[in-house]
Amino acid sequence: MQAGMKIAVAAGCVLLAPVLFLSATLGAVLGTDGASSGAGGVIACTTAGAPTGSVAGYDPDQMANAATIVAVGKQLQVPEYGWVIAVATAITESGLRNLKYGDRDSLGLFQQRPSMGWGNPQQVTDPTNAASQFYRHLLAVPNWQQIGLAPAAQAVQASGFPDRYAKYESDARQIVSALTGVSCASAPAPSSSGGWVAPTAGRCTSGFGPRGGEFHRGQDIAAPMGAPIVAASGGRVIASGPANGYGLWVRIEHASGVITIYGHNNRNLVAVGQTVHTGQMIAEVGDQGESTGSHLHFQVETGGQSVDPAGFYRQQNGPALCAPSATRQAPGVR
C-alpha cells in the first residue's frame, strides 16, 4: 500500500504552447433501526430484514472486526456501500484478522504501513483507528460511489493486485447485511463512454489562457501527491508514459475525437490501447516534469486544438472541474 495523502501546497505547471465484540446488542451498537438511504443514489442500499449476526465461513472474531468497521463507517456518516467496500478490503488484506505481521511493515485489518504515514504500529493495529483511516482516504477518492468496489478499494490501498478486491464483494455485502440488516445491490458496470466527471479532487490554480507572456493550454488542479486521477469520460488510452514537459502523462481519446490529457503524474496505471470507463482510476497526482508542486495538469483537445477545460465541461453539462482558489495563483516558473 501507499502512504497517506499529504495536503498539497499551491502548485502549478509550466506547460505552455510549443473492538466491538459480536453480541446480542450489536444492532444497538450499530444503530441499525430504521430505513437506510442509498449510496448517493448509485448503489441501492435498503433494509432487508433483521440482522442475523453471522455468515457462513466467518468466525465470531472476524465478524467482530467487521462490526467495528461498520460501526466506524456509520459514526463517520459514510454511505452504506462504503461499509461494503471497507469490509471487502479488510477481507482481502487480512482475512478480517487484526494481524500483527504482514508484507514489510504492513499490519492490522487493512495492512496499513507505519513507514508510509498511516500511523504507528499501535494505531494501525487498533481496528477503530485503522477503519477511520481507510474511510477518510476512501472519501477523498473522486466519484468513489460510481467507479465500483475494486477501483475504489485500489485507489486507497494501491495494491499490486488491484482486481482481487472484487472477489470478496459478495461476502462483504452478506456480512454487512448480517450485521445491520442493510442490503446493498452489486455495483453496476461502469459506463464505457459518455458522461463527464472531474479528473481529480482539488482546487483550481493556473487556468487556461495567457500566462507569463505565453499560453497555458490546460487547467491546473492542486491535489495531494498520490491522489487518484480518473478518466474524465470513457475512451481509449492513446499515450501513457514520459512526455516532454509533462513528466508522465496519459492521453485518452473519447467519442467525436475529443482527447483529454493528464500530466505531471506520479504513476500511470493504464497502458496504450486500453479501454477505460468514466471515473476509472488511471494515474496518481504527482510533481514530475516542468512543475512547481503536486498537481494535475488537465488538458482538453477538440479538432486537434486545445480548448478551455472549464468551458468544455460547461458545454457538456459536466461538474465543476475543481474548487475555486482562495487567492490568485502566481504563474509557474521553469
Rank of each mutant, 00 (worst) to 15 (best):
C13Q: 10
L109C: 06
A232Y: 01
G304H: 11
Y58W: 15
G207V: 11
L138A: 09
P199F: 10
G257R: 04
Q274K: 02
H137M: 11
G40D: 15
C13D: 15
S256E: 11
G119E: 06
T260K: 07
Q305A: 12
R173C: 05
Q146I: 00
T25Y: 06
I229W: 06
S240Y: 09
P188S: 14
A330I: 03
A11T: 02
S291E: 00
V300T: 04
S256L: 06
G263W: 01
V258R: 12
F298L: 09
D33G: 11
T205L: 06
G273M: 07
A66I: 10
S159I: 06
R217L: 12
W196A: 03
S94M: 03
A8I: 04
S159E: 10
S325R: 14
M1D: 05
V237A: 07
L22A: 14
H295P: 02
I175W: 00
S170E: 06
Q316A: 15
G286T: 00
S132I: 04
A8K: 03
I261T: 15
Q62A: 14
S240R: 12
A172L: 01
Q75A: 13
G212K: 07
A201P: 00
R217A: 12
L321V: 14
Y168P: 05
P319D: 05
G286W: 00
C184V: 08
G235Q: 13
G289C: 01
V333S: 13
L22T: 07
L22R: 13
A239Q: 09
V237K: 06
S191M: 15
G273R: 10
Y246R: 14
T180D: 05
A39P: 03
K74L: 13
S306R: 08
E284Q: 04
G57K: 13
H264L: 06
S54H: 10
M1W: 03
L109S: 06
A323L: 13
L16S: 15
P309E: 09
V307H: 10
T278E: 03
A158C: 10
V9L: 08
G311F: 00
M1A: 09
V141G: 01
T32H: 05
V156W: 11
T327W: 10
L76I: 01
Y165H: 10
Q133D: 06
L248P: 00
R113T: 02
N244I: 01
I261H: 14
Q2I: 07
W83N: 11
V333K: 13
A222P: 08
T89I: 05
F134R: 03
G245W: 03
Q146E: 13
A88G: 09
Q75Y: 03
S306C: 07
H137C: 08
C13I: 07
H264G: 05
G4D: 04
E290M: 12
V87F: 01
A56Y: 11
M5Y: 04
E80Y: 10
G31C: 04
F134E: 01
A56E: 15
V182Q: 04
I175T: 01
N65D: 07
